[in-house]
């Protein structure tokens, strides 16, 4: 059966570090209608936080730009989240996604942002162009057990 998009939202906000919490709150509010489990909600909040932090720390390092966050929910209870920036972009995506890789040693980054996103979501896709920006797409399939009737 073809899945249907049932709900969607889009938000834009500056890449200020305090907006990492805003992005998590937006994701939570959107997801609450879908009755996620506590674990599913925590997983998505953590993945979103990582993606938005990457915009603040890496994409717009030393500057402030716009972060665009979109969320869509589908009839098969999958959720698709896109976090997009128009920052510096990533030269080598596969290297950037390696565990412990970071370009910000001074900021005590653990280099595990993409590892967390991969672990807490069912699918992640990263597209990027140097000097153009990056788009991170996170897919999470919510448990059907808790679907509202």
């Amino acid at each position: 059966m073809k899945k249907i998009c049932e709900n969607a939202m889009k938000a834009e906000f500056p890449s200020l570090s305090q907006n990492e919490a805003l992005a998590r709150a937006l994701a939570s509010s959107f997801l609450m209608q879908l009755n996620p489990t506590v674990s599913e909600l925590a997983d998505i909040k953590c993945a979103v936080s990582e993606a938005v932090t990457n915009c603040t720390v890496h994409a717009y390092r030393d500057t402030v730009g716009t972060v665009i966050m979109t969320m869509k929910s589908y009839s098969d209870r999958s959720v698709r989240i896109e976090i997009k920036d128009r920052g510096c972009g990533i030269e080598d995506i596969s290297t950037a996604m390696q565990p412990l890789f970071t370009t910000d040693r001074q900021g005590e980054r653990s280099g595990l942002g993409f590892t967390v996103m991969e672990s807490f979501c069912d699918k992640i896709r990263v597209t990027s162009k140097p000097k153009k920006g990056t788009k991170v797409t996170l897919i999470k399939n919510l448990s059907k057990l808790y679907a509202s009737t």
């Binding site: 953590c46 990582e50 980054r109 653990s110 280099g111 595990l112 942002g113 590892t115």
Partner: peptide, 13 residues
Amino acid sequence: SFMDSSGLGLVLG
């Protein structure tokens, strides 16, 4: 109540 990889960096540091 919430921690992401920045918390890991804090602990490791």
